[in-house]
């Protein structure tokens, strides 16, 4: 059974993993993703900034949640996605998976940085401090350093194959940090409060607060989808610069 699943996945991956196939699809999808992510983000953020109610204790500084939570969630999701892409590129030897993994690293770093920066700015008026060596904040900082380490490692190795493997190993090792980030607020007595959105549980706030948050979350994920396709297409343009089909596409 394991073998037939492996064979099935191999076939799929090799089809999706063809740069030509991907280039065509990405080019078709990019304008739509750009349009939808801008629209959804604008909608969610304007709602959150101007129409959602303030918090009864924090007042309007609560509105930072509409970028902080999506950015933090993306910072972690992108890491998982990157690690999966690394495994696929390693086991199945698919170049496109490595291109995806490479494109994920700077984007993940940026979203993690946004989460850290907005968290610090939010912490000042609510907690009374910019930074605290609390388990949640520290593990999130480690995530940022993991991204930076992966970017640095890749740029330090000239051979593409070896770079892919080395960054893949680092990405896999760093995966252990994710449950730590997730459960840090439950395992340790942290200053940071528990998760805003939990699976299987109603959020502890009214819909006029969590609906705009859900929409801006969706907008951020769309924005990431757009950026990662865009970056991966750039990667194809670089690595396949000499191939006939790509020249035909570009000069079309």
């Amino acid at each position: 059974m394991f073998n037939s699943l492996f064979k099935y996945l191999s076939r799929r991956f090799h089809q999706w993993g063809s740069p030509k196939y991907f280039y065509e699809y990405a080019s078709r999808w990019l304008p739509w993703l750009a349009f939808f992510s801008t629209m959804i983000l604008m909608f969610g953020l304007v709602w959150g900034l101007a129409f959602a109610p303030p918090d009864y204790q924090q007042g309007d500084s609560f509105r930072i949640i509409y970028i902080h939570v999506p950015a933090a969630s993306l910072g972690m999701s992108i890491y998982v996605f990157m690690a999966i892409a690394s495994v696929v590129s390693w086991v199945w030897k698919i170049k496109l998976a490595d291109m995806l993994a490479k494109s994920c690293a700077p984007l993940g770093a940026v979203f993690t940085a946004i989460a850290l920066i907005t968290g610090a700015i939010w912490g000042k008026p609510t907690w009374g401090t910019w930074w605290e060596w609390d388990a949640r904040l520290t593990s999130m900082l480690i995530l940022f350093f993991l991204y930076m380490g992966i970017i640095a490692l890749r740029s330090a190795i000239n051979q593409r194959e070896i770079a892919a493997q080395a960054t893949g190993v680092l990405a896999l090792v760093g995966l252990i940090n994710l449950p730590i980030i997730k459960y840090s607020v439950d395992w340790w007595n942290t200053l940071h409060q528990s998760a805003t959105f939990k699976l299987l549980e109603k959020p502890a706030m009214p819909p006029e607060m969590w609906l705009p948050l859900l929409i801006s979350l969706l907008g951020f994920y769309c924005l990431f989808a757009w950026l990662v396709l865009f970056y991966t297409r750039n990667e194809i343009l670089e690595r396949e610069a000499k191939s006939q089909w790509l020249r035909a596409q570009v000069l079309k």
Partner: peptide, 15 residues
Amino acid sequence: QVLAKHDEKYMPPEA
């Protein structure tokens, strides 16, 4: 130093 801790239960002032 005194830090204020809050929970994830956000609420509008009216509520």
